[in-house]
C-alpha cells in the first residue's frame, strides 16, 4: 500500500494549460471510504486537479499515487481501468447515443455479461433511467443527464469516483437529489472526491475538504471545522487567508 495507507495521494503536483500554470504544488490525499471535497471559486484549479488525477491533463511536476501504484504518467484509459474515474464538468453525456449506449460506453470494453450485470445495478440506483433506455441522451433534462453521467461512470466499477461540479447548472431540487445520491454511494462503500462551488452542500456530505485559491491549496481540514472557519469565505473572495487569532 502507499505510505499512510491512503487510497489516493497527490504529491506536489503542478499542471499547466500551455504556458499558464493552472495548479501549483498541490498535495492532497483521499483515504478509502472517505468523501473529500475540493472547494474554491471559479478558476481556482478544482477541475484542473481532477483532470490531472485522471490523466486528461499532464502533471508537469509531482506525482500521483493510486492504490500504491504511480499513475502520474498514465493515459486516462489506463487510469480508468485501474479504478479511478471522473464524472466530467457539465455532464458531457454522449448526446448522439442512447441512454443504454452511454451506459455501455461506461462499461468500456467489458464483456456483455458484466455490462448487463452492472446495468441492472445502475437501473436500481437510478430508476428514472430505466424508462428511458432508448432515448437519445441529448434529449434528457439536466438532472437526468447528471444521473446518467454518474451512472455511466459507475459502470466501470470504480474504486474512486471523481465528480467535477455535479451540481452546476441544476435546479435546487435536482441538486438535492444529486447529493442524496452521493450519500447513497458513500454508504455503499465508494470512495468519492468532488469538486464543488456549492460549499454548503459539499461540506454537508464530505468528511474532509481542501480549499483552493488561484491554483494552490490554501486550506484543508475536516468538514465540520471548515464550516466554521472564516478563511473559507476569504479564499472564495480572494481576500487572503487570515490566521485565526
Amino acid at each position: 500500500m502507499t505510505q499512510n495507507g491512503s487510497l489516493l495521494l497527490v504529491d506536489g503536483v503542478t499542471a499547466r494549460y500551455g504556458s499558464t500554470i493552472a495548479v501549483r504544488d498541490v498535495t492532497l490525499r483521499v483515504d478509502a471510504g472517505e468523501v473529500v471535497a475540493i472547494l474554491g471559486a471559479n478558476g481556482a484549479g478544482k477541475s484542473t486537479t481532477l483532470k490531472t488525477i485522471v490523466g486528461l491533463l499532464r502533471a508537469s511536476d509531482g506525482r500521483i499515487v493510486f492504490n500504491g501504484k504511480d499513475i502520474t504518467k498514465l493515459p486516462p484509459e489506463r487510469i480508468v481501468r485501474r479504478g479511478v474515474t471522473l464524472v466530467p464538468e457539465g455532464r458531457q453525456v454522449f448526446g448522439g447515443l442512447t441512454v443504454e449506449e452511454n451506459l455501455r460506453m461506461g462499461a468500456g470494453m467489458a464483456p456483455t455479461a458484466t455490462f448487463l450485470d452492472r446495468r441492472a445495478q445502475m437501473l436500481e440506483l437510478f430508476p428514472v433511467l430505466s424508462t428511458k433506455l432508448d432515448v437519445f441522451a441529448g434529449l434528457l433534462s439536466g438532472g437526468e443527464q447528471q444521473q446518467l453521467a454518474i451512472a455511466r461512470a459507475l459502470m466501470s466499477d470504480p474504486t474512486l469516483l471523481l465528480l467535477d461540479e455535479p451540481s452546476l447548472g441544476l435546479a435546487p431540487i435536482i441538486v438535492e437529489r444529486v447529493f442524496e445520491l452521493i450519500e447513497e454511494l458513500r454508504s455503499r462503500g465508494t470512495t468519492l472526491m468532488l469538486a464543488e462551488q456549492n460549499v454548503e452542500k459539499a461540506l454537508q456530505v464530505a468528511d474532509r475538504a481542501y480549499v483552493f485559491s488561484t491554483g494552490r491549496v490554501e486550506l484543508e481540514g475536516p468538514a465540520d471545522e471548515l464550516r466554521e472557519h472564516a478563511g473559507v469565505e476569504e479564499a472564495y473572495l480572494g481576500l487572503g487567508v487570515r490566521d485565526s487569532a
Partner: peptide
C-alpha cells in the same frame, strides 16, 4: 511575480478547539 500570498505548508490548520 505572482501576487499570491505565501502558504506555509499545505494548509493553515484552523485554531481553536473542536474535535478533528
Amino acid at each position: 511575480r505572482s501576487t499570491a500570498r505565501p502558504v506555509a505548508g499545505p494548509a493553515n490548520k484552523p485554531h481553536g478547539g473542536g474535535d478533528t
